[in-house]
């Protein structure tokens, strides 16, 4: 079995100040549409047109991605509460 050495990228490979590419710009636009469909309490205060660098894009992408997950989780909790059986009926069951 051959063990292959994988060289690491140079220390300056990452650059959060790099201008956003067209790919990231489109990802931001897609996330912005998704953000506007969320209830207001999940919205960020980030102005997407002002995002210029990868670092700024990353902060926005993280906010919206986490907000989408939280929005769905919160909605699931609310749905579960809405269908939970009344307490009285469970007590009555125990008495039997």
């Amino acid at each position: 079995m051959t063990l292959i050495n994988v060289p690491k990228p140079s220390k300056d490979a990452g650059n959060p100040n790099r201008p956003v590419s067209s790919l990231l710009r489109n990802q931001i636009e897609h996330l912005h549409i998704a953000e506007r469909r969320l209830p207001p309490q999940y919205h960020s205060d980030i102005y997407v047109n002002a995002i210029k660098t990868e670092g700024e894009a990353a902060a926005y992408i993280r906010h919206v991605t986490e907000a989408i997950h939280k929005g769905h989780k919160d909605a699931a909790v609310r749905r579960a509460k809405a269908v939970r059986p009344a307490r009285k009926s469970s007590k009555a069951k125990r008495k039997k």
Binding site: A13, G14, P16, R18, L23, L24, E54, A58
Partner: peptide, 23 residues
């Protein structure tokens, strides 16, 4: 897809999209 900071340090973009680092 992007260079960003994490709790354990910098995460360098690994998608190989130009001009991200191919290594």
């Amino acid at each position: 897809y992007n260079d960003h900071d994490t709790d354990s340090g910098e995460a360098v973009a690994s998608d190989q999209h130009p001009d991200h680092n191919v290594q």
